[in-house]
Structures are given as structure tokens and as C-alpha cells.
Design a protein around this nucleic acid. Sequence first.
DNA 1: GTTAAAATTTAGCCAAGGCTAAATTGAATT
DNA 2: AATTCAATTTAGCCTTGGCTAAATTTTAAC
Lengths: 147, 147
Amino acid sequence: MPQQSKKAKASKAKLQSAPFRRTRSDHSTELVEDYLELIADLIDVKGEARGTDVALRLGVANATVVKMLKRLQDKGFITQEPYRAVMLTTEGWEIAEKGRRRHAVVENFLLAIGVSSETARIDSEGIEHHVSEETLRMMARFTNRKS
Amino acid sequence: MPQQSKKAKASKAKLQSAPFRRTRSDHSTELVEDYLELIADLIDVKGEARGTDVALRLGVANATVVKMLKRLQDKGFITQEPYRAVMLTTEGWEIAEKGRRRHAVVENFLLAIGVSSETARIDSEGIEHHVSEETLRMMARFTNRKS
DNA sequence: GTTAAAATTTAGCCAAGGCTAAATTGAATT
DNA sequence: AATTCAATTTAGCCTTGGCTAAATTTTAAC
Ligand SMILES: [Mn+2]
Ligand SMILES: [Mn+2]
Ligand SMILES: [Mn+2]
Ligand SMILES: [Mn+2]
């Protein structure tokens, strides 16, 4: 006789695998968030976002960006005409803004615990996508205490 | 005449794209680290690591694990015979140990800033791969101060 | 020691994200 | 306005990391 039933084992496995499931889920939305945030920044700073600028800033080939922008258009986050700059839809702006806030909280928090600005800029780019609402609140609280 | 030379533009782009390059690089090593760390844990706790246990804990299909284990074997991180449990090579153990330490620092740090244990367990699984040595040092320092 | 059941592997499919090289389109120059 | 050059897109390739269904092997029951 087994020490645990079939069902008990399955539910335990579900619990134990939760961190990995969340990480995979985070990664599936990460690139979309980074694209939209970056496009928003380009629009704010330069007045427009061209595919080439996006490619340059991400450090990938133009062709890679073209393909991804098609996906973003299919999902309804941007609008674009061939050979023209990209626009964000309302939904695109919302995701970009949410990403910016979260990104800023993480970056400022890293600065607050004593990380250099260069490192904070780099590390926060990856960390931001794996931070839950709860952790984000704790980070914001800590940063405010320290300032 | 342009405001910046071609070369100046290229080097600026390289600097600006550094965070995204780092994130992509982190992601390319992430899964290997998680597999090895998990296999090490299974060996320590259960005495052996079977492919099925790995699949259960990661929350993916058996076939997915079989394929990845072949890659880990090709890279020299594990040894395995068909239908048998997996062993870590010396190099495999080294990577696993390094991952464990880093993972523990991140998780304990999240606890130290007030995050609940469940959330710390989940968030740290993704965050650990994006934390530089510098940030890791600052996290460890903070945790020690608080304990 | 056969046989039935369970565990494991194989085969083959798919989507996401990368790349380079070639074709196309838009912008500038004269 | 024609031509040239730069910017952009298209075409086609690759690797990674998922999946399901079918085949195989091991383990357990009898
Ligand atoms: Mn990011
Ligand atoms: Mn880990
Ligand atoms: Mn991890
Ligand atoms: Mn990540």
C-alpha cells in the first residue's frame, strides 16, 4: 500500500510545481510587455516609434522586430502601416503604463538597497516580470521608508 | 549633417540594449540551472532523481523532460541509462550548488523585506536568474542586518 | 515464469523568437 | 523626373521548449 493516494500525490505535485508554472507564465507575457513599454518610451521621447529604433534598443535584428510587431498588431496592442512608425492602441498604452510603473518600482528598490545605477538598470529589466503584486508592495514600502 | 556619427549611434545602441541582452542571456541558461538544482534536491531528499519526478515537480509532460535530460547529458551535466534514475556529474553538482546558494539568498531576502513565505517561494524561482553578483551581495547584506 | 499494469521513451507535431540574405519601397540628389 | 542609396519588409532557415499519442520496457501479480 502506498503512503499517499493517487489524488493526494497529484495535488501535492500541483502545489510544488506552482513556482515553475508561474515562471513559465511570466515568460510568455514578458516580451509583449517590454515591446509596449519601449514603444511608449520612444513615442514620448522622440515623438514616434520606428521598428528600427525598437530593434536597435532591444539589440535584435530588424526582421525579428517586424515579425513581433505583426503579432502585437494581431493582438490589438498596436497599429501600423507598412514603412511607417508604430502607434499604440488604448490597450497597448495601458499595458505599457502598467509595465512602466512596475519597472520603476523594481529599479528604485534596487537603488534603495544600495545597488549601483548601471546594475539596477540591467537587473530590473529581467526581474520586473517575476515580481508579484505582494512583492511589489513590499518593495515600494521599503523604498519610501528609505527616502 | 547628422547630429551623431554612424559609429556613435552604434555604440550608444549597444549600451542601451545591454539590459535586454542580459535578460535574453539569463533566459538561455535558466532552464538548465533549474533542472540541475531540482535533480540535486530530489537526490538529497529521495535518494534518487527519476525523470517522472522532475516532470511532476516542474509541471510539464514526461516527454518534455526526456528531451531536456538528453540535452543535459550531451552538455555533460548528468549521466543516465534508459529507464533508470539520473545522476549528476561533478560539473552538474557545481552548477546545482551555485544555483541553490543564489536561490536561497533571493528567497531569504524576500522574506526579510516582509514577503510571505508562499510568495517568496514562487517569486524567487523566476527572480533568481536575473540577479547579478552585485545585487546578490546587497541582498545578502540586507538579510544579515535584519537577522 | 507468464501476464497484466505501470512507467518510460519515441515519434511527430506546434509556437515563439532568434538569425541572414534577398527583394522591395521610400527618400534624396542632381 | 530619373537615379541612387538607405530603410524596411519578405522569405526561409534554425533552436528551444512545450504537447499528445503510440511504442516499448520494467515492475508487480499471479
Ligand atoms: Mn523587462
Ligand atoms: Mn532555483
Ligand atoms: Mn528558477
Ligand atoms: Mn525570466
